[in-house]
Design a protein around this nucleic acid. Sequence first.
DNA 1: CAAACTCCCTGTTAGC
DNA 2: TGCTAACAGGGAGTTT
Length: 275
Amino acid sequence: MPELPEVETIVRSLKPKLLGRKITSARLLWQRTLVTPRPTEFSLRVRNCKFVEISRLGKFIVFGLETPRKAGSLRRAYLLLHLRMSGSLSLEHSANKLKVHDRAAFTLDNRYELRFNDIRKFGRLYFLDDHKEVTGKLGPDAILQTPTAEEFFLALHSRKVGLKSLLLDQSFLAGLGNIYVDESLWLAGAHPRKLSNRLTRQQSDTLRNSILKVLRRAIRFNGTDAGDGVVAFGRNTPKVYGRAGEPCKRCRTKIERIVVGQRGTHFCPKCQKPC
DNA sequence: CAAACTCCCTGTTAGC
DNA sequence: TGCTAACAGGGAGTTT
């Protein structure tokens, strides 16, 4: 499941290959992938747009486009993509056969195609004049707009919610998903149900540092290449996520799995003191 | 304001 | 062995 680090890695690898390229046409293979505008307007407007920026905000991939419109009308537009659960992007020759779960394809001016594949169809695509229409609802990006320790502490105290739910809330902090929230809370020694306004300044700082550590490490490892084109997994395996019943890496206590806010939640009952 | 639930989807897995 | 039902999860939306 792509969260901030995975999206960051995708953006970095796509950037050099896509910048400066023009979209010659687009195909929508699963209509509901596209949120806005309507499919006909979409294919019309996306044609002849040039990629001039590729970045990330939270878990959104932001493609900045220069439109072919003449003076007077907008020259800038954005393609926004959220991969959700199972989305992925690939760049391949347009002659290659489409894969089973391909949902959208953008043909480029070099006969290559940017393809969006998404088994579960949860991924969402937007074509917008201003990406803030969507990204404006996000809180600060955990890496690009990290709140200061002071800001983070104040933000925690402005709410009274369990930490797990709060860190999953993209309008509070953008980028974390289920896996990295569990990992961050474990590293910080904070219980997932601990109320946000009950953290001391020191605990808040520890949590903030843990989030940064977990995300930075994941970005570093996602980017590493084993040398044969295979991404080197295995060196950044989760400490608690998906390890229910296994011994805690810190104290050997059995990792527990509970449900918090409809999300499977993994934690060490000894390291992460119940509240 | 917070929490709980529902929906969207399909590959995987547990259970019979 | 072969089937079905439950489950996983991000986020938007609705209800409590």
